[in-house]
Design a binder for these strands. Structure first.
Length: 226
DNA sequence: AACTTGTCCAACCGCGCTTGA
DNA sequence: CTCAAGCGCGGTTGGACAAGT
């Protein structure tokens, strides 16, 4: 007798599939996804079932907008760990790696591109360590990027050397995204400040609020000089 | 109103690591 | 010890919807 392969379904999940999956997980637990997929009667791969459960059906998941505080955690942890989405997600209860990854790629990357047009540049020859605003587009911008570059509030200086100048310049732009970003930057807490003078390799130390698991000291590689 | 372009996000894919027979 | 299956992770895709022209 020839075993007939059941063609697996792909694409968006139906409500009844969700219910079937939830029932199966309730009985069998969150493991052996291939076996669970078969036992549940779903025409889905175990991998697909796991993904659906982890990213959508799992209890205590938060659905909805990323809060300002969550955003700050994402930015800081990405600066520290890079694209370790699952690791970052573990610091944000209720958020999935997929959600964070999507958020990063769309929202923050978009801000980076917007601000590239705004042309914020760090002057690498500036021995004072201050960041200057120039008319040329560069990699440095006041948001995290896939390049791993990031400028903090106290690193941004306007022509007079005053960071408020820079924020004012940024606020002159018309894009709502830029407006949101400058608002966000101006709301950074006072304890999120650079504690050390910039080193040649732009490797600074920050104290951050208690909300990251009680750790008091973090280090960030802000600029690799490339 | 119709079409185009941009954005978001759920889901898929491929790869590498872990586990267990 | 070996190897296949299971699993987790990060990258990518594609469809739905919104915004712009």
């Amino acid at each position: 007798m020839v075993m007939q392969e059941v063609e697996l379904r792909k694409g968006p999940w139906l409500e009844e599939e969700d219910e079937q999956l939830a029932s199966a997980v309730a009985v069998l637990g969150e493991r052996r996804w291939d076996a669970l997929a078969k036992a549940s009667g779903l025409r889905r791969s175990g991998k697909s079932c796991r993904l659906r459960w982890m990213n959508y059906l799992r209890p205590n998941l938060k659905h909805g907008n990323i809060s300002a505080e969550e955003e700050r955690v994402i930015i800081e942890l990405h600066e520290k760990w890079g694209n370790k989405w699952s690791r970052i997600a573990r610091r944000l209860p209720g958020r999935t790696d997929n959600e964070i990854k999507n958020y990063w790629r769309s929202y923050l990357k978009r801000n980076h591109l917007v601000l590239d047009k705004g042309c914020l540049n760090r002057d690498m020859n500036n021995t004072s360590g201050n960041t200057s605003l120039t008319s040329e587009c560069g990699m440095a911008s006041p948001c995290s990027t896939d390049d791993g570059c990031f400028l903090f509030k106290d690193e941004i200086f306007g022509p007079s050397g005053d960071s408020s100048d820079a924020l004012e310049i940024l606020s002159l732009t018309r894009s709502p995204y830029e407006t949101r970003l400058t608002e966000w930057m101006s709301n950074w807490p006072p304890d999120h400040i650079r504690k050390t003078e910039p080193k040649d390799e732009y490797y600074d130390e920050f104290y951050t609020p208690e909300w990251i698991n009680g750790d008091s000291t973090w280090e960030f590689s802000l600029w690799d000089g490339e």
